[in-house]
């Protein structure tokens, strides 16, 4: 029996799930080693749980989300959160710093129909998570590394250091030192220093580097505003 893989969506844009579909060369190999049991972006056919690996995209923003994620957790041996929304609350966590009732009354004609929580929270704030893949969107190399590690019974390995390591490894000269603001020194590596390689500053979508000092982590107030610092 092949291990069963499920992909779940909460409050998010679908971009991270797309990274899985984006693994064009590896997709057939993935399908050869796992049964894709639930992945609505790829197929409406769905097999019920339990699942060996669940990939969870999106943040928790409604009371219904809370119930759904508890069910997903109960049905899954390994739960991996994918992307800035699932790991840090996403850009929608900017509401955490404001009054959600006020937003609701400004944005919606009939605010009483909107059933939402006051805060957008990472999945880990509601249920225990086994691994998290950061990024907006996630890096497909990290996704493949994590899946192949779990399928082969080894521990996935992700960096705790800054994006700067990746700039230096690939030979990108530092855009910050040349005058462009860059959040890379405080941001967790994983993307391969994509933005600086194209001459722009890192905007921190992988969230605060685990190894970065607290004063450096203060710069995160957009994609990862709900991240624990």
């Amino acid at each position: 029996m092949k291990p069963k893989l499920a992909v779940w969506k909460f409050a998010s844009c679908d971009g991270c799930q797309l990274s899985l579909l984006d693994c064009e060369d590896e997709l057939l190999e993935i399908a050869a080693h796992v049964q894709i049991a639930h992945f609505l972006e790829a197929s409406s056919a769905s097999v019920c749980g339990p699942y060996d690996i669940s990939l969870v995209e999106g943040s928790v923003t409604t009371p219904l989300d809370v119930e759904r994620i508890r069910q997903v957790r109960a049905d899954s041996k390994q739960l991996i959160t994918i992307g800035a929304c699932a790991t840090a609350g996403g850009i929608q966590a900017l509401r955490n710093f404001a009054d959600v009732d006020e937003f609701r009354s400004i944005v919606y004609a009939r605010p009483e129909f909107i059933d939402t929580l006051a805060e957008s929270t990472p999945i880990a704030a509601v249920v225990p998570v086994d691994y998290e893949l950061r990024g907006c969107p996630i890096d497909r190399g990290q996704l493949l590394e994590t899946l192949s590690a779990l399928l082969n019974g080894r521990r996935p390995r992700g960096p705790l250091h800054s994006v700067c390591f990746e700039c230096k490894t690939r030979g990108t000269t530092c855009v910050l030192v040349k005058g462009t603001p860059c959040l890379g020194p405080a941001t967790q590596a994983g993307c391969g220093a994509l933005c600086p390689a194209y001459g722009r500053g890192c905007y921190g979508c992988f969230g605060p580097a685990t190894g970065a000092p607290a004063h450096a982590k203060k710069v995160f107030n957009l994609f990862n505003s709900g991240a624990p610092s």
Binding site: E29, L144, L147, S148, L151, C164, F165, P213
Partner: peptide, 27 residues
Amino acid sequence: CLACGNCTMVCPTCFCTSVRDTTDLGG
């Protein structure tokens, strides 16, 4: 200090390395 590691990476004498293993999906 941001603990970003740039100083060691640009330093012409810093030599430290780490070892990491990878597998393919099928093992």
